[in-house]
């Protein structure tokens, strides 16, 4: 058993390109973050910031071609992930790491019953024979809050509502009690009222099973509510990271600050919304220097010329900006 204080998951300088014909899309450009046992790390970012690609890379689910991992390391429990033989790695998927995807309807196989699909990890990893596995599947369905789990285990994904389908996905991902759960925008496709229920379920399960969780999201509200740590991604890099309780009240990167300011607030009178001007960068032609400079109020010629250093503004709180200290100090 590795040291309990050692990080469970380390993503270090990860670089991923998608190549099609002549075009190269650099989806991830040196992303780094760590996840500790039992903790929730939120990976926060806009669409196209590279957060979902990073999640898929951790599970080694990227199809190559077109995806190529061109640099960096991922370690899980201290062991190299990307270099392991695929068949060997596959044995850890589902057992040590579970994954919940965004679109549960597309992510569940339409022609098998949900009971069969939840029972599958037990069978695939040789944990239980089919019949016992199905019993466990029924118990899991009940645990994630599906009424009449015995009967519903024989139903197919299309017979469930969106929220219930996401519960099925979650049951499947936690079946073998993984030490890490990667949830890729688990509530994005759901109604607002259902979103809260699913988040609550995930948090409950996490506490009950002492799972670590990587929560991929673009929802600041969710991050504020559930995350222990946060890694903010922009242009395929983690531009700010730290404990959520440090970063959210006092961000050190202009992008994080702009994100926080763009959230409508109910506690003060607001005349209008504060959107971040411009649009997310085209990952095939990333801006020079700091990828955020075209949208940044503070940008100077320096930001266009070179990539900013990672500045440590407080213990465990880092931001990749020439002016991180000023932003942090509210100047």
């Amino acid at each position: 058993m590795p040291n309990a204080d050692a990080p469970l998951l380390e993503v270090d300088d990860l670089r991923i390109e998608f190549r099609s014909g002549r075009e190269i899309v650099r989806a991830v450009n040196g992303a780094s973050f760590t996840v500790r046992r039992g903790e929730t790390t939120a990976v926060l970012g806009e669409s196209g910031s590279g957060k979902s690609v990073t999640a898929a890379a951790i599970m080694r689910l990227l199809a190559s071609p077109p995806a190529h991992i061109t640099g960096g390391r991922i370690r899980f429990n201290g062991a190299d992930v990307l270099g392991a033989p695929m068949a060997q790695w596959r044995k850890r998927c589902g057992r040590d790491i579970g994954m919940v995807f965004q679109d549960a309807l597309a992510s569940l196989n339409p022609v098998f019953t949900v009971g069969w699909q939840i029972a599958e990890p037990f069978k695939a990893h040789g944990v239980l024979p089919a019949k016992a596995a199905l019993e466990r599947a029924v118990a899991l369905l009940g645990r994630v809050g599906i009424p009449e789990p015995h009967a519903r285990a024989h139903d197919y994904p299309h017979q469930f509502s969106g929220g219930m389908r996401q519960r099925v996905m979650i049951a499947m991902a936690i079946a073998l009690d993984p030490s890490l759960l990667i949830a890729d925008e688990p509530t994005t496709a759901l109604d607002v009222t259902v979103q809260a229920q699913i988040m609550d379920l995930l948090l409950d399960l996490q506490r009950e099973r002492h799972m670590a969780m990587v929560l991929i999201t673009h929802d600041l509200g969710v991050v504020a509510e559930v995350a222990d740590r946060v890694a903010v991604m922009y242009g395929g890099r983690v531009v700010e990271s730290g404990l959520a309780r440090d970063v959210l009240p006092r961000p050190a990167h202009p992008y994080t600050l702009a994100l926080l300011e763009s959230v409508p607030r109910s506690d003060i009178e607001q005349q209008q919304l504060n959107p971040i001007v411009g649009s997310p960068p085209n990952m095939a032609t990333l801006p020079s220097g700091c990828a955020f400079h075209p949208r940044c109020r503070r940008a100077t010629s320096e930001c266009r010329a070179a990539r900013p250093p990672t500045v440590k503004v407080a213990p465990g709180h880092h931001a990749e900006c020439f002016y991180a200290q000023q932003v942090f100090d509210g100047r």
């Binding site: 589902g94 994954m99 995807f101 597309a106 022609v111 990890p121």
Partner: peptide, 23 residues
Amino acid sequence: AYVKTARAKGVAERSVIFVHALR
């Protein structure tokens, strides 16, 4: 997406192809 899910569950590649996809 369901093939990705199967892989994420740790299903062996043979079953991914001949059970999940082929079916």
